[in-house]
Computed example of a mutant assay.
Amino acid sequence: MGIEDHRPARRARAAVIGGGTGLSVMLRGLKTLPLDLTAIVTVADDGGSSGVLRSEMHIPPPGDIRNVLLALADVEPMLSKVLQHRFQSGSSLAGHSLGNLLLAAMKEITGDFVLGIKELSKVLAVRGRVLPASAQPIVLIGEYEDGSEVRGESQIPKSGKKIKRVRLDPPDAVPLEEAVEAIEEADAIIIGPGSLYTSIIPNLIVPGIGTAVVRSEAVKIFVCNVMTQPGETDRYSVSDHVQALVQHVPGLALDYIVVNKGQISQEVLDRYAEKGSVPVQIDMDELSRTGARIIADHLVQVDTYLRHDTEKLSKQLLRIIHSWISGKR
């Protein structure tokens, strides 16, 4: 069945929720398709350049925002490379990426972090909107199965302990109104891929964000990671990922779960195994209990790292969205 078989009368609106590299990779494919995209990005990062700027300038961490902006941007490859450049020397500049500094500068120029993102989006000819889940810096707290806790998104995967749940400080963080509206107006809500506890769930537990997702009549699609993440989703199956989402967002009912069933070479598997990462197992018996339709396809490609095949994944998502809209007519 071709994409055109379910083409709606207007461009479908998609709200994509996540953060980190996985989200950026997927968005590079989605931006080429006839969709009105809004990326809702986590603001819980506290490591590296983002953490320093967050602390010193009292702004939400810009790192994930920067990556998503560049993924959706229509710019020359060299400009993208320049904005991703991380300074290696200089007591003040070392560790900072130019894109992070540019976002911090835009905040000072415009007087508002979100407005700064919008203005930079114009400069970079971004296809779609990029919105933080909240306009305020948020601290992520990880709770482990043994009852211990740790503060800071960057610290959560380091303990080697099994994560029980994550929560926000402040717990009453204010969601960005535009982000909530984007979810309410969406035809499709795409969750993931990305770090489950430190990139995806932090968005969904911002008060008002998860509620809007649950209440929405849009098709809800979860794109599961291809590999487990050391210190975060060790030995997790696909259903374990889903269970964690539902635990943090009570009432969440997914319509589709997209997983990779493609073979990965032994050489690549060995390389990832050295870091404690293995393929996420597709446990169909457990997944059948979720009520979601499982879309399993060969969705990976290998460059330097194992990534989702952006073109195949994006086309698969577009088929789902157009089919859902056509079915509602």
Rank of each mutant, 00 (worst) to 15 (best):
M1S: 14
G2E: 11
G2L: 08
H6F: 14
R7I: 15
A12M: 10
A12I: 07
G19T: 05
G22Y: 06
S24D: 09
L27A: 04
G29Q: 04
G29T: 05
V41I: 14
T42Q: 05
S49G: 07
H58I: 05
P61C: 14
G63P: 10
D74K: 08
P77T: 03
K81M: 11
R86N: 08
L98F: 15
L102Y: 06
L102R: 02
M106Y: 15
K107V: 01
T110I: 03
K122F: 14
L124F: 07
R127F: 07
Q136N: 13
Q136V: 14
L140I: 06
D146K: 00
E153Y: 06
S159R: 10
G160L: 02
R167T: 12
D172E: 15
D172W: 02
A173M: 07
E178L: 09
I183V: 15
E185A: 11
I191C: 06
L196Y: 07
Y197Q: 05
S199Y: 13
I201M: 12
I201T: 13
L204K: 08
V206W: 09
P207S: 09
R215P: 05
A218W: 12
V226G: 01
T228I: 00
T233F: 08
R235T: 02
H241P: 03
G251P: 12
K261A: 05
K261Y: 01
I264Q: 00
Q281M: 00
I282K: 00
D283N: 03
A292D: 00
Q301K: 14
R307H: 06
D309V: 06
K315Q: 14
Q316F: 01
I320A: 02
S323F: 06
G327L: 03
